[in-house]
Design a protein around this nucleic acid. Structure first.
Lengths: 217, 217
DNA sequence: CCTAATTTAGAACATAAGTTTTATGTTAAG
DNA sequence: CTTAACATAAAACTTATGTTCTAAATTAGG
């Protein structure tokens, strides 16, 4: 089931289409859907390649079942059609945030992703995620290892939890945002902690936190 | 599309089966799958009831497409096949936890549920969820409105985050659990907060917290 | 260049699965 | 009771869709 050999382009295309179709339609495609989308001359060729993909452990096929293709993850488990967002990197106080490389990396299968609820995506549109490194966000009720889902934005309304970059301090932080004249108040979510104040020019909003996911032992 | 009338039991059963089948199999059932599972004598009866469900806005049907049933959520959007767990109720300091009614409430659609990642379910088995009410869990890095995913358990290992019921205080709390002789130390996740100690007899473990979900504006 | 393995083609086949039709039983309102 | 709307049945029909077969083209080694 392990295969490190490079896949023929046609087979790669089929696999990509399987994933795209399933995400978009909530059901797997038929052999003929694949044939059309991947511009293949015969259903038998599709069948042949699906068989190869099965041998390589990428998919599962239910015999004689309409739309019986299951797409498997690295552990060989069927994947759900819930949308996934990429975890673009780590966030920590003092660490700059990686440039939003929102391009669709073709080999997206290799990337670290988290499943998010469809509602979230519907509500906010394009999202990405960062994994929190260290306990420096503890005052935002965010622990080491948590994943924060972020909607890219360079502006924020008062009271929203934002990813803020403090230029002078060269520090990233997650706080509630309040514009107060020429000052910005960054208020920890944890009310026992003190807010910090900074001149508006020193604060760069990179995005809004729309969700936090924490998985324990 | 709005319907507040009570649904016939058979239709309710079909709807429940649709959801269960889709979660379990990653593809929607066929008319004949439904027929078998719901002990219906004819495919036309299934078709008839599916049509009614469609009119009522519960599902969508793709004409002439095999397994073309889409299950819709309250907003009329297709749901994903990611597993969902019920939010059994609220948790707050001082509030008792509702009895684990693990029974499958038939009208499960009416209930509040959260989508969880398949891995989580695979890893932990049967789970349920509680919505946190108030900021009393703030020392566990859990905010008002957060949803905690819990694995039922009456025992815990040191260091695990547990749902603990303090008998005398009549209080529920989320803390890290440490058995220390005849005492139990309940340690807030937030290291700036102080632990509480209690005799082992006074502490009743109800479950382990395996995930925390927070959605913001 | 030759041969074997891999991949592609075209067509036909078999059945899985949606749909339709007609009839019968059940319930609720007047 | 009567009637109409609702619900169930049985069977047949159509097509969507997986599968198979045979042959040809292409690629990879030796």
């Amino acid at each position: 089931m392990v295969t490190s050999k490079k896949m023929p382009p046609r087979r790669q295309r089929i696999l990509a289409f399987l994933q795209e179709f399933y995400s978009d339609n909530s059901i797997p495609p038929t052999v003929r859907d694949i044939q059309r989308a991947c511009e293949i001359s015969s259903t038998s060729v599709v069948d042949y390649n699906l068989e190869k993909l099965r041998e390589a452990g990428y998919i599962n096929r239910r015999q004689d079942v309409a739309r019986g293709i299951e797409i498997l993850d690295q552990e060989g488990e069927p994947i759900s059609n819930a949308p996934r967002v990429q975890i673009l990197g780590l966030i920590a106080a003092g660490a700059p945030i990686p440039a939003w490389s929102v391009e669709e990396s073709e080999a997206s299968r290799e990337f670290d992703t988290v499943e998010i609820s469809p509602e979230l995506l519907r509500q906010h549109g394009k999202l990405f995620a960062l994994r929190v490194n260290g306990t420096s966000m503890i005052d935002a009720l965010i622990d080491d290892g948590d994943v924060v889902i972020i909607k890219p934005s360079s502006v924020a309304n008062n009271g929203e939890m934002v990813v803020a970059w403090l230029k002078e301090e060269e520090e990233t932080t997650l706080k509630k945002f309040y514009a107060e004249g020429s000052q910005v108040r960054l208020q920890p979510a944890n009310s026992t902690m003190e807010p910090i104040y900074s001149p508006a020019e020193n604060v760069e909003v990179h995005g809004k936190v729309v969700s936090v996911i924490r998985n324990l032992g």
